[in-house]
Design a protein around this nucleic acid. Structure first.
Lengths: 343, 343
DNA sequence: TTGAAAGCGCTACCAC
DNA sequence: GTGGTAGCGCTTTCAA
């Protein structure tokens, strides 16, 4: 039962060919006659032989493995991203090696581990980036790509949504909806997504001579966001428009508004999120939000990774994938003549 | 910039030792003097040398890679499982190689691929299992473990929740709550989870001389579940108690009940799910459900996988992890004297 | 404790 | 088109 796995030699012997031929039979485009290939594959099948990717990687120096570091899986955005990334990488012959950092979100302990596996590239999503990490990767020539995140120095490539434009669009939308007291619920203070969305939002308000009336921090955490919401709605003159750094936060805030303060969301208070996760469209939420098209972002990520791996790209790229305002029922709407601001 | 990755030889040369010593320095428990180890590690660090896991795997014949096949990531249960599994495997020195089958849920095309990577074991969650797959794995001596799923023939090991007990408990709970017209919304007809939960539910009803009044199929899909719910609530005498095969389904059904039929959930109609995903506890849902403790299930999975990999276990094991009824507000409650039926 | 040497399973290069 | 051969980077004997 403890049968040893068959090797290319076993197949070769049984097929009466050289081991090289077995290798060729499993390599697309290798020079081998159709009949030889057929016979080898038949023998291989009969032995349940499968080429050893480990051995192949060792010699080709390419592992076809992509290290993906991801956490915050309770935010529906990320599982969707992971599934999409995995599927898209698979289409291009890559496999995802998953790394889920601990709650601290620091990927450094994982760094070593990731690189030991000779991954072709690293994709970091929802993980804090230390510059140390990027340097180490650069040193061993492993491309790094940030998904839905950026570093301040622009040295590391990234794929993100339209955070600034989205924030501005939402600001404009809420202004046009006749709101007066604007609040922002931030995610993590040091995350570029939260910063940029707030920046766009603030810019829109400023352009109209308004500013953020209240600001809370939800740390991209459901219960922290609930706490933030409680503070927000407890104030004497509560905000009538709340922009949350992402949908996950918005849904937490919404729950508190309805269940604990009895507010009619979309009427007494407008709540807007960011991401357009599947949840946002559910009847219970009907969340107005700015979309981040996961599929497009994933495809773009895979394209960039591939370009880096193949050496077609060598300098950092910062790709921004367009989204759009998804108008649902969680926020009061402006008149029909409202148009999103030009990007 | 295209610097070649340093190998153990490079480190050896610079440290003035043999390459074997470099290997020993990175192998816990290898016989090497403290000072030699220290020097080697120092040199290694200065070169950014990291042992090549690929090469190591080739020689040790153990990849420390676990193939995890997973889909249905829109059901919050699975992302949580994935995160927990990944974390738990990491603790034991294993890494997760992720496979996300297409929408058809058939893992067969992945089979080859998974096995080519010389994975130490395969964990299948939310993926349809073909017996073919199990046989192939057995043939090359790769342990397979089903997570939250079983096969009818019991030949493949599994870790599941208390599906039958849970279903029975829910049936008893709803009966005690004074409900009259019971409905079940199935998941996928051929999934063991849906079958077992229904079985337990039916048994409880039968013991009380009742039976399922209406039955629909939601295919574990949000919009299919919504459709099922519409049929359910459109009938003249609509059910007053709906047990859904999982939380994901229950939440879809709940949304339809409230938004489209204006039903007060927990009063006019009781809805119960299964899993106890994080969503279930959110204020908007307050879903009564039977829990599947993800962390315990994951730990158990890792333990079993390890036992199989190390050869301590050779025959199939079917582990059932205990859950409990989470009583919230989506279902009318019985009096305080109600007790769950003995398992 | 240390070094030399064999070889894991494969690809790639070389002759033929 | 085919077979021989040289390694990929490492662990693991085996002597010293």
């Amino acid at each position: 039962m403890e049968r040893k796995r068959p090797t290319a030699y076993d197949v070769a012997r049984l097929a009466g060919v050289s081991q090289s031929m077995v290798s060729r039979a499993f390599t697309d485009g290798a020079s081998i006659s159709a009949q030889a290939k057929e016979r080898v594959l038949a023998v291989a099948k009969s032995l349940s032989y499968r080429p050893n990717m480990i051995a192949r990687s060792l010699i080709t120096q390419r592992s076809r493995l992509i290290g993906v570091a991801m956490s915050y899986m309770e935010n529906q955005f990320y599982p969707t991203v992971l599934e999409e990334l995995s599927r898209e990488f698979a289409v291009h012959g890559y496999r995802v090696l998953l790394f889920t950092p601990g709650a601290d979100g620091n990927p450094d302990p994982l760094l070593d581990e990731i690189l030991r596996f000779q991954v072709a590239a690293v994709v970091l999503a929802s993980v804090r980036m230390t510059s140390h990490f990027a340097e180490e990767c650069a040193q061993v020539n492993v491309p790094v790509l940030l998904f839905n995140r950026r570093t301040s120095n622009q040295a590391v490539s990234s794929v993100t949504g339209q955070n600034i434009v989205g924030g501005r669009t939402i600001g404009s939308f809420l202004l046009a909806g006749g709101h007066e007291r604007f609040a922002f619920v931030a995610g993590l203070e040091d995350s570029s997504t939260s910063q940029e969305r707030e920046e766009g939002f603030g810019a829109a308000l400023q352009a109209a001579g308004k500013k953020t009336y209240r600001r809370e921090v939800g740390y991209y955490d459901f219960s922290a966001a609930q706490t933030a919401a409680r503070r927000l709605f407890s104030s004497r003159e509560r905000p009538d428009a709340v922009f949350c750094a992402n949908d996950h936060t918005a849904i937490a805030v919404m729950g508190v508004a309805q269940s604990e303060f009895g507010l009619r969301v979309g009427e007494e208070v407008s709540i807007v999120g960011f991401d357009d996760v599947a949840l946002a469209a559910w009847p219970s939420f009907q969340l107005t939000t700015y979309s981040q098209p996961v599929q497009t972002m994933s495809q773009r990520t895979v394209q960039l990774v591939q370009a880096f791996v193949e050496g077609r790209l060598t300098t950092p790229v910062h790709d921004i994938v367009a989204g759009e305002l998804m108008i649902r029922r969680s926020a009061r709407r402006p008149g029909n003549d409202w148009k999103p601001p030009a990007a």
